[in-house]
Simulated scan of single mutants.
Amino acid sequence: MPLKWVLHWQPNAGTTVNSQILNEVTQCVESINGAKEGRWKATLTYYKPMLRVADQSLAAELPRDFLGISLPEQPDKYFFIVRGQKIVLEADSSIQTIMEKLQSYKSRVALYFEGFQYQLGDFQLRVGKVVPTHSENLRGIVMEVEYLPLSSIEKSRQVMEEFIDIWQEAISKRSLPGQFMHIEPNFTEYGLADQYTSQHTAVQYATVMAQLIATQSAQAGRN
């Protein structure tokens, strides 16, 4: 499948994300001739173990928490990431129903990534907000950049970096209080190869969420 980078908006110190920044970013995509193709949505859920009294001795052996992710390009799949042990798993989407019935783990918090998809030559861009379920409270802004001709991470690196440079230049003209950041996970730690898959996307989303949480924690500390 085509290679993809997932970026997140890093606000400047003392500032926060807001809907005005999201609107400006969306307008910026359209200003560089991005053709709107429709909406997209991904969901990320934090799970934690439901330990009964008799199971307390197992607490050290179970993941303290892990992430479940559903992606629009793979609606029949569900992805799990245990960041502590560097594990990524792909399952049938019905696993969510099974987990609810087993009640071994419960959903602690769920977040939606949703916005618009654009076509820009050989690139596909998805720009969206990060919001908790049943809320409009903006937690962050993400952008997916997909390069359609290639699926090799290394072979596409240069063209991706060049595209991001052009994008950052276009964004900088709007004098917004922050910038998009790309932090590439060490995919080999998760047992993933150079050929890109949806598991790579799931690991990137887990990394982005860790960055968003760290940013918000730092802001809360300053406040």
Rank of each mutant, 00 (worst) to 15 (best):
A91W: 07
M143N: 00
Q211G: 02
Q103V: 12
Q158P: 00
E161S: 10
Y47G: 00
I171F: 06
Q119F: 03
D194T: 10
F66M: 04
V53M: 09
Q117H: 04
P63W: 05
S175R: 13
K48P: 01
R139M: 13
V127Y: 05
I141S: 07
H134I: 02
G115T: 03
G34P: 03
I164N: 00
N223A: 11
Q20M: 11
K41N: 06
A13R: 13
T16M: 08
L7N: 01
E169C: 06
N223V: 09
R83P: 12
S198D: 14
T43I: 09
E30L: 04
K173L: 09
D165H: 11
M209E: 12
S94A: 15
K101F: 14
T45R: 11
T188P: 01
S198F: 10
E100T: 14
A91G: 06
E90T: 10
Q117V: 05
N33Y: 06
A91N: 11
T16Y: 01
V88A: 13
A110I: 06
K48R: 11
L176T: 04
N186S: 13
F116C: 07
L89R: 10
V29R: 01
G14W: 11
T26Y: 04
H182K: 07
Q158E: 05
V131W: 02
S93H: 09
Y205F: 15
Y196T: 09
V17S: 10
F66Q: 01
P49C: 05
C28V: 05
V208W: 00
